[in-house]
Design a protein around this nucleic acid. Sequence first.
DNA 1: GTGTATAGTAAGCAATGTATATAATAATCA
DNA 2: TGATTATTATATACATTGCTTACTATACAC
Lengths: 141, 141
Amino acid sequence: MQVNNIGFLLTDIKRLMRREYLKSKLPMTPMQARALVYVSRCEGIRQVALAEMLEIQPITLARLIDQLALDNLVERRPDPKDRRAYGLYLTPEAAPSLKEIDIEIERVRKKALQGLTEEQVEAAMEALTLMHTNLSTDSPL
Amino acid sequence: MQVNNIGFLLTDIKRLMRREYLKSKLPMTPMQARALVYVSRCEGIRQVALAEMLEIQPITLARLIDQLALDNLVERRPDPKDRRAYGLYLTPEAAPSLKEIDIEIERVRKKALQGLTEEQVEAAMEALTLMHTNLSTDSPL
DNA sequence: GTGTATAGTAAGCAATGTATATAATAATCA
DNA sequence: TGATTATTATATACATTGCTTACTATACAC
């Protein structure tokens, strides 16, 4: 029941990073920005696949894509081989937004990691990646 | 613009830990549980002070306390020296809940940290604590 | 062909957080 | 003292992220 709990710490950092991001006044929310980044890395991906990558429900992703489509940053193109499915593609307008997001992510990252050595960052990433894996698997415990 | 971003990773882990916690079917939400734990560690604390510890707005905390008070786990006692303020205290009924929360936190922690060495956990805690400090201070950058 | 699985969406809701405003009280200072 | 300012808690209204459940349309498998 210590207050210096790793879950509490993670929760706080996540909130603080979001707060920091919001100072940027970028028009897209953090998760929208993230979805946009992922689309740019996997153009043509289907919504189910992207939802799985982000580990959120398809409907949750659908809403993010709705917004990005409304803002004319992402386009749903019908899949020629499966009439149920869409491929997600960037619009030409997406490029500047992606650049701004990139800069903003880097700014927040720098602020968060100020004063940490490269080794410390590496160690943290390694530990966090393991935690992610542990929590993703549906083992008991 | 890498997808293996520390912010993304933190976001995911936090979501996965929440999901894991929710499997417990404990009647209080994660933040309610956390607030209860903090009250147990600082009985008599005022709401502003607790909100500051949790780094959330006073109104956000007020709602958490409302719920805990409704569930008869926390009591607002008028501060004898300041008629605007309340001290937060556990009710007698809180003890069993705290025990359950403790067990649940430990379960999630174990699942998340499975396979990590003590050194890895230490390193992660150290890095995360530094990040927390960096993000809490209102420096520019 | 019939039954089952999959892709996407709709509706409705919950948790967490915010900004802004207000009431009551306390503290400061002229 | 009395006026101004600050602090404590709360009300209202809202946004974001996430969920469950249910539905339509299409694909696949037997």
